[in-house]
Computed example of a mutant assay.
Amino acid sequence: MHNEAKQERQDRYNQRLSGTITEHNAEAQFVIIGTAHRPPDWIEDGTQIGYTTNEQRLLLGRVINTTESEVHVDYGEMGSLPLAEGRSVELWSAESHITTILQQSWLLEARRDFSGLDTSTPDHKRLVQNSTRLLETLRNNSSPQITPKHHSQLTSVGRDNLPLNASQQEVVNHVLGMTPGDLYTVVGPPGTGKTEVIAKAAHELANNGERVLVTSHTNIAVDNVIEKLAGDNPHRAVRVGRPEKVSTKAKELMLEKVTDNEAASVSDLLDRVDELKSAIGDHQKRISALEEHKGYLNNEVDNRLQDADREAEINAEIAAEREDLTTLRRELREKWEAAEAGSVRQADIVGATLVRSQLGGLAQVDFDTVIIDEASQISTPMGL
């Protein structure tokens, strides 16, 4: 498994996009990278990417916007970087890199029984305790003996409040009967109500005073569960992740749970988020239109018809639009991260993707129970 993770890391690093820095705005701290081909799917708005130049591998920043032949990257969080117009670079997915590093690092430590880790730090101490307990469970020759609870009147979460069927109740009762170190697998074809069961189990665990992490490899799977916990649910449910990736309903749920009477109202926050998203879309459209007009001027057959002054004006307009777009993206991220930071430690139920659950402030939070949706679609070390 360790060697497979190592190979995966190399394969993902080999998935790169070559380009040249065509514009570097040092004051606004962003770069435009021209590419010979349309940026692939792994380069999208909000994605963290790295770059290789002169054999140096460095984190670059977050993608602001992409076009048919350009990638606009905000490097404001990275500080000073060796960037210059005309420099050739190779872009790679920092998020994929983080994923493989997390898995490979854990496997390396597990192979040597975590003997190399300094357990005087809280993070390392918790990692060793949790991992050792998990490995002991996996190495056990006998099946875990879970004593299920006997709740017979379990109903779905939300306004429908429909009774769960016998198999769904059995699953929830087994989840509620788990003890530290237990692993429990739920298998069922589509349409059997697994998401309903996850939401109910998380709700009941929170009723018992537990802190629950609901996670998956996809954002939509996390959103589906968190959205079921919206409405009149008394528990503080928080959705953690990139604002570009979180559904509108999940975003609204989060803002509802974290806004107090002294802060701006939920509707004001949502209005501002919508304004930012709309403004970002407008700026992207204007940049595309300006680039198209610039291309038209450059393709004039008769050079006498070219207008150098107009081309300079268009370049200045594009630069201004890009600067505004960078500022708007930063404001959107800051508002989201401020809400996230102020709420995650008080949450009863947290929804996040697997990778995101191990990054930033969320990595410092202790959970009593972890529920991994669509677990069959992830690698074993990632789940561990």
Rank of each mutant, 00 (worst) to 15 (best):
L107Y: 07
A221C: 07
E337Y: 06
N299T: 14
P189T: 09
T100Y: 08
A230C: 11
G76C: 11
F114Q: 05
R333G: 11
S142Y: 11
A36D: 15
I280C: 05
I198G: 00
T20F: 06
V31L: 07
T137G: 05
A316D: 10
I318T: 05
S376N: 08
Q284W: 02
I220C: 05
G188D: 04
A312N: 15
P40S: 02
A312P: 05
I318P: 04
S267H: 10
P234L: 12
T53E: 09
V89P: 00
V186S: 02
D41A: 15
K257F: 00
E196C: 00
N261E: 12
H235P: 05
L59G: 11
D373I: 04
P39L: 04
P40D: 02
Q15C: 08
F30I: 08
N224E: 04
R272Y: 14
E300A: 05
S288D: 08
D41Y: 11
E313M: 10
Y75G: 01
Q29E: 09
M254H: 10
S156L: 05
G191L: 05
V246P: 00
S80P: 01
A279T: 11
P39D: 04
I32H: 01
Q284S: 14
V73Q: 01
E323I: 01
D309T: 14
G50Q: 02
R286Q: 14
R111F: 08
T22P: 02
I378Y: 00
G342D: 11
E109A: 14
N161Y: 09
V344E: 07
Q153P: 02
S142G: 12
H174N: 14
D260F: 09
G19A: 09
Q103V: 05
T53L: 11
S376V: 08
S343Y: 04
S69V: 09
E204A: 10
F30L: 10
T132K: 13
I318D: 04
E311L: 15
A28C: 06
R333M: 13
